[in-house]
Design a protein around this nucleic acid. Structure first.
Lengths: 217, 217, 217, 217
DNA sequence: AATGAATGAGCATTCATTCAT
DNA sequence: CATGAATGAATGCTCATTCAT
């Protein structure tokens, strides 16, 4: 009996996963828009109606995707911070190296995270949105306290704030430098160079400067 | 309806402006989406067809709004930087104070600027998108060179880069802290405090730290 | 509305047919234009969106109508030619009689066929248009070879060509004599008599003359 | 005074002509649809409102174009028939040669004439449509009587009827063989050959056969 | 007479969601 | 549980025509 339930639960999870997977693939392939439910149904091999058995609305699918991506990202950061650093300089170096590594390993995070706000304000039950924010807040505080362990001169809550600033810079810079290939190919004048900088080269520079300014004397 | 014929150029400009105005109001009122042409028509007291006499497509209306807002913003920054600073510390202080003032005076800039990417990738002639990017790039370089005047140890192009980073932080932090009133009212737990920081208090802190880190020895 | 679900294939076919039927009625009632999707939806008692479950575009509805009508027409002609004739004169007589009979039994063919070109050049995937032409070409060759059986002095391919000429005359004469009732009632002068000839009387005359000229020594 | 009027009339005629000219160019350039009034205004260098001073509706512009083209065509045929032929065979040969020459010299006639019916049934004052038909009928009778002069065994009215049949075949065959270049390029199978015959080679064959059949014994 | 700004009904098509099967 | 047929409001946009200037 329990066995049967377990199997059924597995099936449920696997269907849920295939929906998320299909949605993710469609989102990455195309433009910065949520794929349509028809497209998701087709790509996941399920019927349209079935999608509504697993998610109450299109935006909830996307939010689940967002949660997964944030989760993996935060897991990575947590891993990076698990190694306690003795000096501020050591912390900055280790954090930057680790963080960039995690981000490069989760390249879709940037595109997904950039959609967060517009998704949260759309067709979503506010309760659901709040639940998402709470998860995020809890983990920020959690991982923030690990930061505070390495940087004891930080006050309570300042670790989380530091992470929030890092996150803000991460997506802010991405939005500023992101550009479709089509348009990028038309930006062949010297004047555009500042807008064409490589994101993964630029990000550690800005983050490094901010952390340095933040943690210095 | 306002069946007033805009014959002279200034009348046309004013009608154009009333379209932009209506679009702006609708955008600010509602969610993070471009209002529909029907809604814009109704809000501006014009027929739908009339909108297309002034703009070739919905996205061009929004781009015009974007250009105006960026223009005012950059004018403000240019004004701030017109006063040459002798020291790095003086520069940071003067810039931060001036910049925050300009930003507070243009509060819609943040929501508009956050839409830039999604608008530029939508139903827009790529030429138009490039033209917009060029305007921006030119002014960034231009104002960047003013930065370089105050901070002579910066190399050529580093002023523009500094401004770009400031811009990235400006919108990144905004997206991280932005939250609809409805949802904000539901975030009454202590755990949410890091997500509820006041944007205009937080921004100068992060910007200050970054500039300090960037310009320090 | 007819919220009846067409689940089985035959139910779907019948729904598809009811769309074609409604389209046909609207086309026959009104002017020489494809009816609008709104009108078709209303006339078929279905929602607009439902139409797109059965046809990918408005023009495909009409093309399906065209295919059906051509199909029935060609079936009829094939039936007529199934009886082999021994003499040229016998062939002409039998063919004319049979052809006119088929055409009278399919009176809408003339109006539909007259639209073929304009429909094929509209909003239609060229592949689809070619597919339609191919069907037509195949059947013309097919039935043409039956003609060649009755008329052994014709070379290979001349049977199809003969049918094409018959078809050209069929629709050419129809267009020349077709006239809305409203206008027809205003043509009460003797001078108009040549334009008011009865199509079904005139057609066998012209076709007979052409076939006679074509097949004579 | 009369002078001034004459000048004014000239101007009127020239404007009217430039409208027709622009419409014609646009129609020939594009697909088988009447160009829009905006396009006509732009192409003729006149304001949209001005078009309505010269024509009451879009279709009247097109009808005027049709009248001109029919007029030139019929003038040409009249010229061909002005030379009286003594024998039936002589008539057929001379007529075919002359007619094909006229048609080749007026290549737009085919596309225009094919639109006649759909234009006449659209947004047109029936009176206007009747007027057009009358002009045509009168000239058909007129030129038909010239045919009767060369072919004395024809009864009264049979000359006009012969011309009507010629016209029917002319446009019927054109519609059957007409095909956009795009689609034509996709018809590279042998099976399509019957649909790809050259119109100006095929037409005299069919016309010759019909006339032979019509005028023989 | 000429203009061209303004209109608004009309268009084909999409798509999140529902619910009978 | 799962399906997918059906919905219909909503979308961006066109265009013949009008009429104040």
């Amino acid at each position: 009996m329990a066995r049967v339930r377990a199997v059924a639960d597995d099936e449920k999870l696997s269907k849920r996963h295939s929906i998320l997977d299909a949605t993710f693939r469609l989102f990455m392939d195309n433009t910065n828009e949520l794929p349509s439910m028809s497209a998701i149904a087709k790509a996941s091999g399920l019927a349209k109606g079935t999608l509504y058995l697993y998610f109450r609305a299109k935006e909830e699918i996307f939010l689940a995707l967002l949660e997964e991506s944030f989760g993996r990202m935060l897991d990575g950061v947590q891993g990076v911070l698990a190694v306690r650093q003795e000096s501020t300089a050591g912390f900055i170096g280790a954090f930057l190296g680790g963080y960039l590594g995690v981000l490069r390993g989760e390249p879709s995070f940037l595109r997904l995270a950039s959609m967060t706000n517009s998704v949260l304000e759309q067709n979503l039950d506010p309760e659901i949105a709040v639940k998402f924010k709470k998860q995020l807040a809890v983990r920020l505080q959690d991982i923030g306290s690990m930061v505070e362990t390495s940087l004891p001169h930080l006050g309570k809550g300042e670790g989380a704030k530091l992470l929030l600033h890092v996150y803000a810079i991460t997506i802010g810079l991405w939005q500023v430098l992101d550009c479709s290939k089509k348009i990028r190919s038309m930006l062949d004048d010297e004047i555009f160079s500042v807008l064409l900088a490589d994101y993964f080269e630029e990000l550690p520079i800005v983050l490094g400067q901010t952390l340095k300014g933040k943690l210095a004397g």
